[in-house]
């Protein structure tokens, strides 16, 4: 479905310096700096996959999305999506994709949602029967029936996002780009959006590429994860594999009767400690969790113990640190 081979893209950026003298100098002469936004990016994606594409700000995420959606032309490399090269047959290719930019709206602000939908129908030249079928399905699954006749500016962010997603699926694309679809949404709306993507992916075999900073999105949706940093792909695989490879830390929370003795076990770090409760980080490469519990029960009178895998959020932060991103 998607095959990306050795994509490279670099930008020239003017260097700005501070100070009045420097600024005056820059009036006549400017230094340029080359930034490699993408270096040798390769991956392939099968139909029906949901792929989480993550990385810190400025890592090259949006550049990749822009190349794949036909907006940007790369310096070198190839990209074949559904038999098209996105930047070559832009107009024909983009009929097959849907794009949601979470921070920008594709709906017309002052008119009812349905008017925007109808205009999009004309832009994408969707046939009346297809439009009708898609619309009724989307209205039903996203529960839009009450929203259709409200002007967009009166919608809440969550309502609007549901409409945005519907808008990008009206022309039944086979590939959907979601750029931070849950940004700024409340918990209920986030769940609704995730639920919908999951169902729609199942029913229509829709391929989804998802960028986000919310790891819960990834955990809920994406089987597969591509991590990018400084223009390079750092990890490409299943979420579970990422955990096995990097997630060697577990969090151990213990409650105990008041005691004066210090907790000091090799392979653990104390994350927090109060009189009767401590939270420990355990490096499972050095020591087993059960061993730690055993040692602890020798020192303390434990009343409760709970073990958690390291939250993916922390795992990513750790990864970023490891790669110095």
């Amino acid at each position: 479905m998607i095959s990306v081979q050795g994509l490279n893209k670099s930008f020239k950026v003017a260097r700005r310096s501070s100070g009045l003298r420097q600024a005056t100098k820059a009036l006549f002469h400017r230094d340029y700096q080359t930034v490699h936004a993408l270096s040798d990016i390769s991956f392939s994606i099968q139909p029906g996959e949901i792929v989480g594409y993550i990385g810190p700000n400025g890592a090259g995420k949006s550049t990749t999305i822009k190349v794949m959606s036909g907006i940007l032309v790369p310096d070198s490399g190839s990209c074949e999506i559904m038999g098209y090269t996105p930047w070559k047959d832009r107009a024909r290719y983009v009929k097959n994709i849907g794009v949601v930019f979470g921070q920008r709206s594709q709906l017309w602000w002052d008119v009812p949602v349905i008017d925007s939908f109808e205009l999009l129908r004309d832009i994408y030249k969707v046939s009346p029967s297809e439009y009708k079928a898609n619309l009724s399905l989307l209205v039903e699954t996203l529960q839009l029936s009450d929203l259709l006749h409200t002007p967009v500016r009166q919608l809440s962010l969550g309502q609007r996002m549901r409409c945005e997603i519907a808008a990008s699926l009206l022309h039944s694309p086979t590939l959907l780009f979601l750029d931070e679809p849950t940004i700024g949404l409340d918990a209920v709306s986030k769940l609704a959006v995730r639920q919908f993507i999951k169902t729609y992916n199942n029913e229509r075999n829709l391929t989804v590429i998802l960028t986000t900073h919310d790891m819960n999105d990834i955990e809920a949706l994406a089987e597969r994860l591509i991590l990018i940093g400084k223009g390079h792909i750092l990890f490409d695989g299943r979420l579970k594999a990422l955990r096995e490879k990097f997630g060697a830390h577990k969090t151990l929370t213990i409650d105990y009767k008041e005691s004066a003795s210090n907790i000091d076990i090799i392979g653990t770090t104390i994350l927090s400690q109060t009189g009767q409760r401590a939270v420990l980080g355990v490096d499972t490469k050095q020591i087993n969790v059960s061993e730690v519990i055993g040692k602890l029960s020798e020192q303390l009178e434990l009343s409760d113990v709970s073990v958690e895998a390291q939250p993916i959020e922390e795992l990513i932060v750790q990864l970023y640190q490891e790669y110095e991103l």
């Binding site: 822009k66 107009a91 024909r92 930019f101 920008r104 832009i123």
Partner: peptide, 18 residues
């Protein structure tokens, strides 16, 4: 400046009209 032009590029119509 707002990046809205990108949106026009992911639609299957010519840019001038859009």
């Amino acid at each position: 400046a707002s990046g809205e032009f990108d949106r026009l590029l992911v639609r299957p119509r010519n840019t001038i009209l859009q």
